[in-house]
Design a protein around this nucleic acid. Structure first.
Lengths: 365, 365
DNA sequence: AGGATCGTTGACAGCGCTACCAGCAGCGAC
DNA sequence: GTCGCTGCTGGTAGCGCTGTCAACGATCCT
């Protein structure tokens, strides 16, 4: 055979082209835009490529085309269940596409995020997925100057850099509190950890709901910057009980905390929901399995990741969505931990209706 | 200025070299092996690069050098807590190095793994991290032919492709059963889900331990191929109870199942550990927070990831470890869920000593 | 002093692919 | 018959960097 191989023995595009009897550039087009070829050449190139086991060299492609087929993803945590669901969505939706995912962990630091952003942008990614809407001014400027599609995920806000997909943590928290009001609870504690911007907005939702009902008391709020855990949920709840008496329910900023509160109740022989109602956030799998089952606010995490990746890929390929901001909503899943006994006479009837509109607990736009 | 810029306005190495008054190749060396330069040129190149804000073009580098600075990582699941800990270790250890992580999800399919391996290898990664020791014949052949360091993680076995880091799931399961024997339990159930090769080896460890003690009964084993969950733990345990009576303890193949069993006990008002002892596997955070606290086998997941990445990078750079197989061990963490009452008279004294050597529950090599 | 060695530097020639532009055939319209 | 158009194809010229090898002066040894 007259074909010359590179020393590494790798098959190059030129070999494929030669076997197929076309020019290299035609073979190149086959891999990027097969429709542009005549049917005859298309099949010839295809079978030649298969026969030789050709695999494109991505580095050469990136160098020649001046762009990569990499989607950068910046998330604050790898271990938080919330993000692993989102990630799974992103990976699933990118699979089968030509794009590969480049993941980095900001560890909840917007400075770290800025640093990583600079790194990513220097390699001209095809698109970018960033978490949240709280970037540094510098990051924001870089994102706006970037010439690739960008999606902010996990929450929505008024001023997208480009596209945005998430839900309102503020509204979700308010809906959770409205549910507790509807069940007759009035002295509702808030337990929060990590206190990243999204947890902060859940707290804001709680505060506004409580104030609207004339029930706000800052001593009902226990938070810490420490990373969240089940153990911490128990500890924070213990703090809350030590500080305030007469609490009838707790809204936890996430489900791990809620589970910790449940265990702490068990440890102290506090009946749930009779003495204390518990509501969590995210609706992780175990919330439906615990005893009693735990009420939570379901968020569409997998969908958030998969839709974000799919939207981004569409945008990269020139098909921008009609609406750049997508609200995935949330649903308050009412379970035993917050149900007032309905078969028996309610042991703690609401003394007055809370001053909050009793709208639907679901917010699926 | 005489410098010519590329149309994209990007700073190239040539610009840096010109400003520094050296040849491009010298500038290139500065970024790869600064020690090779004289101090004078080194500082000149460094300040020129900083002044221009130069960022190397990785695609060009990869093309010219015929290798990438990418470490491929193949794991079976993104959402399983076990792997998120490992991943965090990998990302942490690779941060600050020149290498970037390329992650893919095999979804517990060795065929999918083979496919992804082919994809990865075609791009000449600098190194590879693969999960487990059960590859297809084809995958194994590809790995052996690959000219980059490879680490198999999560478990150890007799025949490493290259390097290996993990622990013996078989021994860990045996140690868990030995602990239950030591606490006087004899009718020990096994609850397992997903049944990937590592869970299978835990089951093997259980079987051997039970057989050695003359207590093996296959009706004590409940497994399913379904992905694991807390809910599933409860359901499988319910199956076990329906099938067999007199069970005094349950060894769960992972902690989610164990939590599900605990909740199921609570639902049925079975006292833990008095009527049923529970042992889990992995020692996730919540195991220490539950009521009662749950015994588990601690595995060093974060360390496994970080050590694997660090070892791999060392090997890539030519410093191979003395010993290619690293056993990270495990520890049985004894908690309330499996403790025989010691203050009171044991309600269920062991009728005969189990025929298993009562070695240390810790296996930290 | 002569030769060998080391540390440092630079010239050259690609790595494998694609952007750009030109060319060519086939077609319908005038 | 000419023109312009469309659809397909190919040639040329890099993309930005590094491997290889040669050259140079400085240092060391005999």
């Amino acid at each position: 055979m007259g074909r010359k191989r590179t020393k590494s023995g790798k098959i190059r595009l030129a070999e494929v082209a030669e076997l197929a009897g076309v020019s290299p550039i035609t073979a190149s087009r086959f891999f990027r835009n097969p429709e542009a070829l005549s049917l005859a050449k298309r099949t010839r190139v295809e079978s030649a490529a298969r026969e030789l086991g050709y695999v494109p060299n991505l580095a050469a492609r990136a160098l020649a085309s001046q762009r990569t087929e990499v989607i950068g993803v910046l998330i604050p945590s790898l271990t938080n269940n919330v993000f692993s669901d989102v990630l799974r969505g992103i990976y699933d939706a990118s699979e089968g596409s030509r794009y590969s995912i480049q993941l980095s962990n900001t560890r909840y630091s917007i400075l770290q995020e800025e640093k990583l952003l600079r790194l990513f942008l220097a390699q001209k990614p095809a698109g970018l997925i960033v978490t949240g809407i709280d970037q540094t001014t510098e990051s924001r400027a870089m994102l706006e100057a970037a010439d690739c599609p960008i999606i902010q995920i996990m929450e929505i806000g008024p001023d997208p850099v480009d596209m945005m997909i998430g839900f309102s943590h503020f509204d979700a928290a308010r809906a959770a509190i409205a549910h507790l009001f509807a069940q007759g609870h009035r002295k509702i504690g808030f337990v929060g950890a990590r206190m990243d911007p999204r947890v902060q907005r859940r707290l804001d939702g709680y505060v506004v709901a409580m104030k609207d009902a004339g029930l706000y008391d800052q001593r009902l709020i226990v938070t810490t910057a420490t990373p969240t855990s089940v153990t911490l949920g128990g500890a924070l709840f213990a703090d809350l009980l030590a500080r305030e008496s007469g609490i009838d329910s707790v809204f936890c900023a996430n489900d791990d905390l809620a589970l910790g509160v449940l265990f702490e109740c068990r440890r102290r022989e506090i009946a749930v929901p009779d003495q204390i109602a518990i509501v969590g956030f995210n609706d992780l799998e175990f919330m439906a399995a615990s005893v009693p089952t735990l009420t939570s606010v379901r968020t569409n995490r997998y969908e958030m990741g998969s839709t974000a990746a799919a939207m981004l890929i569409e945008a990269i390929e020139g098909r921008r969505p009609d609406e750049p901001v997508l609200d995935l909503g949330f649903t308050v899943i009412e379970r035993q931990s917050s149900q007032t006994q309905r078969s028996a006479v309610s042991p703690r009837p609401p003394e007055r209706a809370p001053a909050v509109q009793n709208d639907s607990v679901t917010n699926d736009p």
